[in-house]
Amino acid sequence: MSPEPDGDTPEVPDDVAALIGVPQYPITATFDVERSYSWDTLAATQNGNPLFWDDDVAGRLTGGPIAVPTTLSLWMRPHYWEPGATGEQVALQVHFDLKARFDLPEAVMTDNTLIFHTPVRPGDRISHQQVLRSVSGPKTTKLGRGRFWVIDIEYLNQHGDLVGVESYTGFGYRRDDGPNP
C-alpha cells in the first residue's frame, strides 16, 4: 500500500491488495448440469434455437445435447435454501466479501465478459474458483459513492476441461452521505 498524505483513505488497503490475483473459493457444484435449466433460460428469452430443442440437430452439430452457453454461471449458483444453511446463500462470494469489507450495502454489476470453451453437457459437474483482479479507489456515480472491482471466474468440468471464463466488474456503493468507504 502506498502511504496516503494527510491521513486520507488509502486507495486499496493492504489486506485487500493481498488478495489480488489469489484464487479463492474453489468450489464444486452440488448438483449436475441438467437440461431443464437450459429450457428455463430459453423460455425466459424466447429463444427457439433448434440446437437446444431438437435432439437431431444437437446430435448432428454437437454430438448430443449441450447446455445453453450463457447458462455458464448458473451451475455454480447455490440453492436459495438447503438443510443446514443459514443466512442468504450467494454466488460470487468475493463480490460479497468486498461489499462487507468496505461497508458498502448496495452493489450492481456493470460489465461482464464470457468466453466459452468446451461445451457444458447434461450430467456434467462444474467447478470454479474466483480471482480478484482489481479494486478501485473510492468513486462517485449517480448511484452513490463506492468502489469498482473486477473478479474473474474459471469454470471446469469434472474432467478438468476448461468450459468457460467469466469476468465481472461490480460497483459496490452506499447511497447516503455516510462515511467514505
Binding site: 429463444n47 434455437n49 440437430v57 450463457t70 447458462t71 448458473l74 454489476m109 466459452f116
Partner: peptide, 26 residues
C-alpha cells in the same frame, strides 16, 4: 446480468442459426 447475456446470445444465434457458436461476448 446472466439473463442479459442470454438475450444477447439469443439475438446473435437468431441470426447465425444453430451452427453459429458464440466464442466470446463482452
Amino acid at each position: 446480468t446472466p439473463n442479459q447475456a442470454a438475450w444477447f446470445e439469443r439475438f446473435l444465434t437468431d441470426w447465425t442459426g444453430p451452427a453459429g457458436r458464440v466464442g466470446r461476448m463482452t
